[in-house]
């Protein structure tokens, strides 16, 4: 199963590397969001620095939606998902592979967005421990968001109005990730005195729950209707 998942992830990432949609469209969108937040908050440097964790994660979630929609559409627009099934790939492997691919894309997006937050909002990473917290939070959150996104992407695939349905369904689901990841970043960027490592537990729980659900439910969603 793991090898199949790696195959799928490799395929999706290769498509991404060649088409560069995430880098040419999703990343600019996320940076644009950061710029708009600055306008909305009247370019107040203190407010921007204090709220940078929350703004960062809202930007990641919105941009992540685009990446998730893109990865889902890859399979469902031309019914390539049927070809994948015909290649004797099990639905859980497909789920795991797509989750990996989205996680990698989200991580790349976050790595660049963190630079944006440091530069535009004046946030600062003070110690190696903070940097580690930042990194681990990003990885765990990405897996959670990617797992939930892959699952809900398949749920809304191929139906009318999926562009509006996916955000309505997915964003309330991701509310715990937004809360947990923002708090952990609060600690790492020093904008609030909280124990960020404790919040990782919630993020980890979320990721595990959605990985398990995805592995179980993805097959049901791919069934022939």
């Amino acid at each position: 199963m793991f090898r199949d998942a790696l195959l799928i992830a490799g395929k999706d990432l290769r498509i991404e590397a060649r088409s560069r949609v995430v880098f040419s469209q999703v990343l600019p969108f996320a940076i644009l969001a950061l710029v708009l937040f600055a306008f909305a908050l009247d370019a107040d440097r203190v407010a921007l620095r204090d709220f940078s964790p929350g703004l960062f994660w809202v930007a990641v979630l919105f941009a992540g939606l685009l990446a998730i929609q893109r990865t889902t559409n890859l399979e469902h627009d031309d019914s390539t998902i049927d070809s994948l099934r015909l290649s004797a790939l099990e639905p859980p492997s497909i789920f795991a592979g797509k989750t990996m691919a989205i996680s990698v894309q989200l991580l790349a997006l976050q790595a660049l967005l963190v630079l944006g937050v440091l530069m535009f909002y004046g946030a600062a990473i003070d110690s190696l421990g903070d940097a580690a917290l930042l990194g681990v939070t990003s990885v765990v959150s990405s897996v959670g968001v990617a797992a939930a996104g892959t699952l809900y992407g398949a749920l809304t695939a191929g139906i009318r109005g999926r562009e509006t349905l996916l955000p309505i369904l997915l964003l309330p689901v991701l509310a715990p990730v937004l809360i947990g990841a923002t708090r952990a970043f609060d600690d790492a960027l020093g904008s609030a005195a909280v124990n960020g490592w404790a919040w990782l537990a919630l993020l980890g729980l979320f990721a595990v729950v959605y990985l398990v659900f995805g592995l179980l439910a993805y097959g049901i969603l791919l069934e022939e209707s």
Binding site: T156, L165, I168, L169, P172, F206, V209
Partner: peptide
């Protein structure tokens, strides 16, 4: 909203059922 989009009733029922179960599990997490 998912129920409101129409389309093939069987596939809609299946999708809706998965969302209903996932959402119930979200209650304690939320």
């Amino acid at each position: 909203a998912l129920r409101g989009v129409g389309g093939d009733p069987t596939s809609q029922a299946r999708r809706s059922a998965v969302v209903a179960i996932l959402s119930a599990f979200m209650i304690p997490i939320v």
